[in-house]
Design a protein around this nucleic acid. Structure first.
Lengths: 332, 332
DNA sequence: CAACAAAAATGAAACGTTTCATTTTTGGTC
DNA sequence: GACCAAAAATGAAACGTTTCATTTTTGTTG
């Protein structure tokens, strides 16, 4: 038998409305409050969230959509966001987009019909071209914030790290340590997360008056195998001083390929990644990389979202976090 | 302005009850069905899930509690379970226990008040001693199934791999390839996931009539750093033929320590892990390990849970999956 | 202790569905 | 076309809360 608010009211000898007030922390005389709280414990009463949500139109649930949870980088994001949300009394409904806009769309629609109060979204690779479902979100006044990257087609809150600066620092470090000819393996140049980093790469070269070739910048899929194959292609032609990638898993692919071909890292070729995964420090050699302040970024993301939920409706902002150059042993 | 079932009814010119039938796929004349569906699309009507859940007492939401989502092994589990659940029309509320029974308890209570239909739980390390909240779940008739491991204190559905056999196979492989003195780094021996594997380890030795020393089996925390430190302790005394661990991250810690001390893997010491993480094949050297059929296990877990949700109440079972020995280059 | 304002408590409506007992429609048969 | 059973549609109650207009209690003042 389910215990409802009516039972609590009856046994406490007060009205249903009064019990509701106690539950929601509204003013009630101290005598009655303690009496009600006592019976709540006694009966082990838990309010039915569906009934509450039906009236208040709040679910105290946030939808988080990540592209791929198998990558520990996103695992960390989920972990931190979950923790921050929990601390604020919100639950976390998880969505996985597999980096496809179509799945992002379906997930969002589902979440909306599930009445999430807000959304945190890691943008997909191909999402820029199909933003209808995001516009609809805005139109329905459901707050959302992007983390890690953003869609340029819509003004929105966004928390990301300063890719340009991170890339600039990394490239500078390489150039200043006798790596003049640096290949750069990126994702599609159309994507913000590529283009911003390419900007940083170029800046470092220009600032030093060193020339680079545009064909050193190579588009490829951002995974281990593609990085491996692309590296094979590069070393067939010539051995560069260094190879940079846009994430650590790619850097691992590069290193594996070099090793398999008898090329030493970092003696023959320096290799650098991006993200600073847990595994990157365990790798052989430990990876030089750029660390994004994920924990802080997640915290801010949640803070912004909660503020929006509370009605804050000032202009949308992009929050850029500085990232940190981590120098380990994969670069000379 | 929110579109409700009343609007659909009014515009379609039918009663609310009829629209409800259409939505829930109950028998309705074809003419009316198509008319109603048309207006549903026209108005872009989405049923309010809270109102539905309030009556049906179903939320079409499953709570999944993992110990730590930063480990890609669990990332994969979450990913697969999410996919299977989605396919069956269920949503996934995520919980993280940080391997602590107390947090598991809080999460479960929260999920219950959120009316999850069922739960999938990865047991914590210290959960065996405090099972009250699990008993309560049973008492409230909320179905749950364990994955990866189980609590012995309660009969329940459980999907796990055959650790004994996996360990046996791995140990056998080592013994049959000139590794006679095998150290085994495990988690607390009290834990099922340790004790089962130790059984397999011993079986392999006994079967071959080879003697091992009980002090080769060493308890430690199941992470990189602890494995590293423990390995330092071992090699200070003597260099064994091989070191086995209960997960791949630990094996990586062992290898790192050996390398740092100028000991070659596998030439001087063989090292083997367990889990076959994505990174294990990329590691240097690529890890010999045991792969659990995660994908199938997740599928079965979801299947069992759904069956329970549908009222199946036959005896609880432990489903043991065979695991696969993956021989790579970290063992001779 | 009467009068009154302020504070506290009440109880019914409302939220948006599903369910089910009741009514209406359909279509087959004589 | 009258009759009837079966099929379809209806409409009101119910789910467990919150909200808010109304009533009751409390406490202060002259």
């Amino acid at each position: 038998m389910k215990i409802t608010i009516k039972d609590v009211a009856r046994i406490s000898g007060v009205s249903v409305g009064t019990v509701s007030k106690v539950i929601n922390g509204k003013p009630v005389s101290e005598k009655i409050r303690s009496k009600v709280i006592e019976t709540i414990h006694e009966l082990n009463y838990k309010p039915n969230q569906h009934a509450r949500s039906l009236i208040t139109n709040k679910s105290y649930t946030i939808g988080l959509i990540v592209t791929n949870i198998t990558n520990p980088f996103f695992g960390e994001i989920v972990s931190h966001i979950k923790e921050d949300l929990e601390q604020k009394g919100y639950n976390l409904l998880l969505g996985i987009s597999r980096d496809q806009s179509s799945e992002e769309k379906v997930t969002i629609e589902n979440f909306v019909s599930r009445h999430v109060d807000g959304l945190i979204i890691v943008p997909t690779r191909d999402g820029e071209h199909e933003l209808e479902h995001i516009y609809k979100l805005r139109q329905q006044k459901i707050p959302f914030v992007f983390i890690t990257s953003q869609y340029l087609g819509i003004r929105a809150d966004c928390v990301m790290s300063d890719f340009t600066k991170g890339s600039y620092q990394l490239t500078s470090h390489l150039l200043d340590n006798e790596n003049k000819e640096i290949y750069f393996l990126t994702d599609s140049k159309e994507l913000l997360l590529s283009s911003k980093r390419i900007d940083g790469y170029r800046m470092a070269y220009m600032e030093r008056g060193i020339t680079y070739k545009e064909n050193w910048i190579i588009e490829t899929l951002p995974n281990f195998e593609s990085a491996y194959k692309t590296t094979e292609g590069i070393i067939n032609n010539q051995i560069p001083d260094a190879i940079m990638t846009i994430n650590d898993v790619m850097a691992m692919g590069v290193i594996k390929c070099l090793k398999d071909n008898g090329i030493k890292v970092p003696e023959d070729v320096s290799v650098a990644g991006y993200d600073d995964l847990l595994f990157s420090s365990m790798f052989d050699p430990p990876l030089t990389t750029v660390k994004q302040p994920i924990e802080e970024m997640c915290k801010e993301t949640v803070d912004i979202l909660i503020k929006r939920l509370q009605g804050y409706d000032k202009e949308f902002n992009v929050h850029l976090y500085p990232s940190e150059l981590i120098i380990r042993e994969s670069t000379k």
